[in-house]
Design a protein around this nucleic acid. Structure first.
Lengths: 196, 196
DNA sequence: GTCTATACACCGATAGAC
DNA sequence: GTCTATCGGTGTATAGAC
């Protein structure tokens, strides 16, 4: 069969840029068409399921990135601190220092929430669990590690929101820079908060 | 002049619920109409500027809440810990334990971002600064207090995102419960990270 | 102050030629 | 595989009666 004028990976890249910039509802077919250089009918040729299938493909790409550039390094060989540093570097690149949005965060809002929640949830939970596993290997108790893994994901998502909200990359840059040290800090002796 | 069938505060309340649930782009006039019981033309009578003016009014209401229930208590009289606890209680109520969204976060995304960024930015910054002021009064250095105030806002926003993303209030509940203790913790002796 | 009725742009989506 | 042309629906917004 004849080659497409643009490789599928390139199409997906351009679609991804749109979804990360304006979210699911903001990613209109007009914008997706303009970004790819393909008219709407051509987009439907590649993605018969329309916008929802495009978003699903883009989300799959994000999951692949998470797997390859975050989860795999976290489960790797080096010292815990080193592995967290690798994640931080990957985050800084992927989010362009806080300028680019997170698909997981964007797709958990509005209309997209109902469609993709299962995928988003799985990704967020695996991310937190992978961080927790590193912390356990550094001698932190499983319970505390679990909380801190969740904290890390929360802080990354929050930093992206605040960075966008105040129009500065500062909060994101500081958050990820401090992340490894915070995660590996010795447990405090504060009285255990236990809610139930 | 004759009284409206529904007080303006009630109309604003119902509009607010919609914006907090589905964000700016998701808050269509049809939904706003249904939520208020007013047809579109009636909404335009109250808000000649249309959807943008409704969102602005709703955002003003959120700012009033922030002022009254967060900034004012933070600037109040009691012990630092006590004031932070008051804020946490207000947050838990306002966000319904993590089930309801944050207008500041929602309005810093998509199309709304361009319209409201100045307001959102001011609110986020004042919030962080108010927390920092409390920390300074508890003996924390101004630089560290500033960072921790920003951290607090980041963690609240991130907890709301993750709570929605994984469909559980747990992350939000834990985050706000731990917030005062974290904020007031003594400074660590970690080497100072200074980026430039 | 609320309504009915409507204008017009843009949405996601499809048919069918090349 | 890409295009032109178009569909039905819904978006925001407005005119004008009551």
């Amino acid at each position: 069969m004849p080659a497409a004028l643009m490789p599928r990976t390139e199409v997906l890249d351009r679609l991804t840029r749109v979804f990360r910039e304006v979210g699911y509802e903001g990613a209109t077919l007009s914008r997706l068409s303009e970004a790819t250089g393909l008219v709407k009918a051509s987009l439907y040729h590649h993605f018969p399921g329309g916008k929802e299938e495009m978003a699903a493909a883009v989300l799959a790409g994000a999951n692949a990135w998470l797997e390859e550039c975050v989860l795999k390094p976290l489960a790797g060989e080096g010292a815990p601190r080193k592995r967290l540093d690798v994640m931080v570097e990957a985050l800084d690149a992927y989010y362009a220092g806080g300028r680019d949005g997170c698909l997981l965060g964007l797709l958990s809002q509005g209309e997209a929430r109902d469609i993709f929640q299962a995928h988003v949830r799985t990704a967020l939970e695996r991310w937190g669990a992978a961080i927790a596993a590193v912390l356990v290997q550094s001698g932190i108790s499983p319970d505390l590690a679990r909380d801190r893994g969740e904290d890390a994901v929360i802080q990354i998502q929050g930093a992206l929101v605040v960075a966008r909200g105040i129009g500065s990359t500062g909060p994101f840059a500081r958050t990820v820079a401090e992340l490894p040290t915070r995660l590996l800090a010795p447990a405090s002796d504060e009285p255990k908060r236990r809610l139930q």
